[in-house]
Simulated scan of single mutants.
Amino acid sequence: MANIAYLTVITPTAMIASNAIAVTFGNQLLGYMAWIIPVMVAVSAFGGLSVHIMTSSRMCFVGARNGHFPSMLSHINMSRLTPTPALIFLVPLWIPIVFVIICIFLVIVPCYERPYELGMGILITITGIPAYFFGVAWKNKPMWFQKINST
């Protein structure tokens, strides 16, 4: 369906010239809201990875319970109620190391390339801290505030 949508909006010549067809599609169809395309692609990738990790570890866990895998994979972490050995069995050590390196890169590079935009992002985040303390962390709110908040 995505390919059909691309073909209805973008000409084949524009597709060949494009480095990222989805971005070109978003620019032509959504205008100033085109930023939503890469965000949704990232959300989709994150969701797919989460599902893969959870279902794959569950298959190892159940396989170990049925005797198809070593019984060690059927153990459950009692504090978190997760099949931790099965999760560790599926994530080779180099993957989280590369992930952490990429995350560090993605945090450090914007500090040098776009310090103004980074500062604005930090400022927006900091403005939410008082709202968090006032609305969430403050547990002994006065009754009048609780009544306003519940209606």
Rank of each mutant, 00 (worst) to 15 (best):
T151Q: 09
L49W: 13
R58A: 15
P142W: 09
P96W: 12
Q28I: 04
A131S: 09
F69I: 01
K147N: 13
I97W: 04
S74I: 02
P12T: 08
I4R: 06
G128M: 03
L90V: 07
E117L: 12
T84F: 12
S150D: 13
A2D: 08
P83M: 06
A2F: 13
T82P: 00
I97G: 04
A14G: 00
C60A: 11
I10C: 12
G63E: 06
I21S: 02
G128T: 04
G26P: 01
P38C: 09
Q146S: 15
C103R: 02
P92I: 06
V109S: 06
F61I: 01
L49T: 15
V100N: 07
S150P: 00
I21D: 05
R58S: 15
T24N: 00
E117G: 13
L93Q: 12
L118P: 01
C60M: 10
N19F: 12
T13N: 12
R114T: 15
F46C: 10
A86F: 00
I97H: 05
G67L: 04
N27A: 10
L29M: 11
H68E: 15
V136K: 05
I126K: 01
F61G: 01
A131F: 12
T125R: 02
I4Q: 11
T11N: 07
Y112K: 05
F89E: 15
S50D: 14
G31C: 04
V41E: 12
Y112R: 07
F89W: 11
K147R: 15
E117N: 13
G135A: 09
A14M: 13
M40C: 14
F69E: 08
G47Q: 06
I104P: 01
I21N: 03
P115R: 07
A34D: 05
H75G: 09
C103V: 11
H75P: 00
R80Q: 08
G121Q: 11
M78D: 13
I97L: 13
K147F: 07
T24E: 13
A42W: 03
F46T: 07
S44A: 14
V41Y: 11
T127K: 04
A17Y: 02
M15I: 13
T82C: 05
F25N: 03
L30T: 02
F145W: 14
G121N: 15
F145N: 02
A86P: 02
G48V: 00
G26R: 03
S57V: 00
G67Q: 05
I108T: 10
S44M: 09
I108M: 11
N27Y: 03
N27T: 06
S18P: 02
